[in-house]
């Protein structure tokens, strides 16, 4: 597997009311081919700015970016990728089928093949029955679905999806999630920017969390959500419980069963040794699993504390 997206020291600054705002701050990141990569961060973190640099819509002040081995924004690269913007808007006088046909033409897809793809995609996103309706008659959810269909018109190798499930009802939400999983099965790379942390946790292989334009956490989802702490349960005497409490003040004791939370992984053996030495009965040793939400809040919270109070970037425009 090669590298689908590579960013090195990517930096983007904007002028805002006379002040310079750094929207993306020396971002270095790699996305492997075939993976679903979650790009997370609070509003104004620089996610959309980063995607726009990768697509060549805006230009970095520093650093470099490559997509599918070609410079960001390169024409050949754009033949192989697709983009679904956040809250997409299309020419609303066109019908769903006409819109897909329009984008298909821009890829110079032959007419017969284009027609087949349009039919297939409308079916795929559940809009076959609304193909002749003008987009101005579409609901927000339908627009989101036609947006996803247009992003698939060229059978891309890499998809940039910016909030693809925004505005969708729960059923459509699940359908889009399944669609993204299908894309992975087809070997496509998905660069998914989303606030839906539950979706990201379910579908993404790896994530990066961005805050104030800086990369604050990256890694495999499975590793990030698996906590390093452990919960230990054991039947112990009062004396043993006291010994344990001296090291772990948060110990809870109920009917002779001690529960010790947040035991660091490297201290588990010590805890077990104390229990055994006190003739206690070890009941369970369970790794404490975090949700992605916990990881996100922790990462973003840490950055906010590190940076201090108000940062104008939280109000930065989605450039």
């Amino acid at each position: 597997m090669g590298v689908a997206v590579r960013m090195e020291g990517l930096t983007k600054r904007f002028e805002q009311r006379g002040a310079e705002v750094t929207a993306v701050d020396h971002l270095t990141l790699e996305v492997q081919e075939g993976e679903i990569f979650g790009f997370l961060g609070p509003n104004g973190a620089g996610k959309t700015t980063t995607i726009k640099i990768l697509l060549g819509l805006i230009f970095p002040n520093e650093g470099s970016a490559e997509v599918l081995g070609r410079p960001a924004g390169d024409l050949e690269m754009r033949r192989q990728i697709s983009y679904l913007p956040e809250s997409p808007y299309f020419y609303d006088y066109l019908t769903g089928a006409e819109l897909l046909d329009f984008y298909g033409r821009l890829f110079h897809i032959p007419e017969k093949e284009r027609k087949e793809r349009v039919d297939h995609l409308l079916e795929l996103v559940g809009l076959a029955g609304d193909r002749a309706k003008q987009l101005k008659q579409y609901s927000k959810g339908m627009l989101q679905r036609i947006g996803i269909a247009q992003a698939l018109i060229n059978d891309p190798k890499l998809l940039f999806l910016d909030e693809p499930t925004s505005g969708l009802d729960p059923v459509a939400h699940i359908e889009i999630r399944r669609l993204i999983e299908n894309l992975r099965d087809q070997g496509k790379t998905v660069f998914l920017s989303s606030h839906q942390l539950s979706d990201v946790e379910l579908v993404c292989d790896r994530i990066a969390i961005l805050n104030y334009g800086r990369l604050v956490r990256t890694g495999k989802v499975s590793e990030l959500v698996t906590g390093r702490d452990v919960e230990v349960r054991a039947r112990v005497s009062d004396t043993t419980a006291e010994r344990l409490r001296q090291r772990f003040p948060n110990l809870r004791l109920h009917d002779g069963i001690a529960v010790v939370n947040e035991v660091p992984a490297d201290s588990v053996n010590d805890v077990v040794d104390i229990i055994r030495a006190g003739q206690g009965e070890l009941l369970s040793v369970v790794p404490q699993r975090q949700t992605l939400e916990d990881v996100f809040v922790e990462a973003v919270g840490m950055t906010r504390r590190a940076i201090g109070t108000f940062n104008p970037l939280s109000e930065a425009p989605q450039k």
């Binding site: 819509l57 983009y83 913007p85 821009l106």
Partner: peptide
Amino acid sequence: ERRTIYSLLSKPVQ
């Protein structure tokens, strides 16, 4: 303004 340019310029359009 309507952001239609994003979908257009992300296609192979010079």
